[in-house]
Amino acid sequence: MLRLAGARLLDERDGQAVRAVLTADPVASCMVASRVESVGLDPWRLGGEVWGCDVRDLRGLRGGRLDALCFAGPNLIPLRGKRSAMRAFADRALRRRRMCSSMVGPAEQVLGLWAELAADWGPAREVRADQPLMAIRSTPLVTPDPLVRPVRPDELDRYLPAAVRMFVEEVGVDPCLGDGGTGYRARVAELIAAGRAFARFEGGEVVFKAEIGALSSAVGQIQGVWVHPDRRGHGFGGTGTAAVVQRLVSGMGRTASLYVNGYNAPARAVYDRIGFTQVGQYATVLF
């Protein structure tokens, strides 16, 4: 007889099983896959832990596959698992104080895990239950803006104010609070150094910006799409995002993906015109 074992910390001995889960849904798992592919499963190098639940027989022997997977770090990202697995992940999460700033991932798992954690971790600042996960694997249908390009390291101080404004608009919190913006500045500088921050500058000011927030061997996840308020309604969001898609699909050989709030009809219309199609459903819980 088989039973689902409790959540346990995974290590390199579980590498093959973890990668099988990540490969099974490369778009949904991009955020976790990008980390695991780069540094493996060691928590110190990963900046978090990967938890799993697997099927074992009554003698306690491992069944050889992971039926549930969750990353616990700056974000809590449950990727696979039924209700019993979410309960097991919640039990493990509650053994320590909350470290994550959000929960994000496939809606079924995020909302299921939140149902187990809400009594202890709630109330949430916001629950975004409807976030279509979208992807495009071909050339964009919108002509890319030729003036959108990778941001240079020496342009950090010009790019950063736009990144902060985007973060405040999207998340509702100033990323400069707490440490004066040191951590956020370092993260943005890291993306720029990696060639994953893109912008159109006019007169030294950012008109459009976007980043490839996570990059696995198969998928690049676009984040932080933003157009200067004075230039909205002029098509910069579509042509700029198309430029980043073009870089991912044609330049890097990846699928381009992103997720968007379901209530953001204008953004969804832009992504539809570019050629994105919905491939899943995400949810986010913000603390």
Rank of each mutant, 00 (worst) to 15 (best):
R268D: 00
G253V: 12
A5E: 13
G172C: 11
S138T: 09
Q221D: 13
R187I: 05
L111Q: 09
G178F: 13
V142I: 15
L111G: 06
R196Y: 06
R273S: 05
F198M: 12
V18M: 10
T255P: 08
I212R: 03
N261M: 15
F201C: 01
R137S: 14
K82Q: 13
A7I: 05
M99E: 12
G203R: 11
A90N: 11
E155A: 15
V270I: 15
A194P: 09
D174P: 06
T239D: 05
Y271P: 10
T182W: 04
P144L: 12
G47N: 12
C100K: 01
R80N: 03
V142D: 02
G64V: 12
V249H: 01
A115F: 04
F276K: 02
M1V: 10
R196N: 13
V207R: 14
D157N: 15
A118T: 00
A197K: 00
T241Y: 04
R152C: 07
A124M: 08
V18P: 03
D130S: 00
R268N: 04
L177V: 04
E12N: 12
P132V: 01
V260R: 01
R196L: 15
V27M: 08
L94V: 11
Q278G: 02
K82S: 11
V227S: 00
L111V: 12
T143Y: 02
F208N: 01
V249L: 03
V245A: 00
L156G: 03
E108H: 07
P153L: 03
Y259L: 01
Q131T: 03
L4S: 06
V55I: 14
A243R: 07
L22R: 06
P144I: 11
A33W: 02
Q221A: 14
A242L: 09
S101L: 11
P78M: 10
A88C: 07
R62K: 08
G15R: 15
M31S: 14
S84P: 06
A197Q: 00
R35L: 15
G47P: 08
S34Y: 06
S84T: 10
T182G: 08
D91I: 09
R8L: 05
L258Y: 05
R96G: 13
L111K: 06
D67H: 14
P175R: 06
Y282C: 14
R231E: 00
L2S: 10
R158S: 15
G52P: 10
L9N: 03
E205K: 11
S38W: 05
Y259H: 09
R80F: 05
R62I: 06
L9E: 08
V270S: 04
D42I: 01
A194L: 14
C70W: 04
E37S: 03
T182M: 11
G183A: 15
F71E: 04
V173F: 07
G224C: 12
L133Q: 14
I274W: 08
C53P: 07
W226M: 00
G237D: 01
V260S: 02
P175F: 11
T23Q: 14
A90E: 04
Y263M: 06
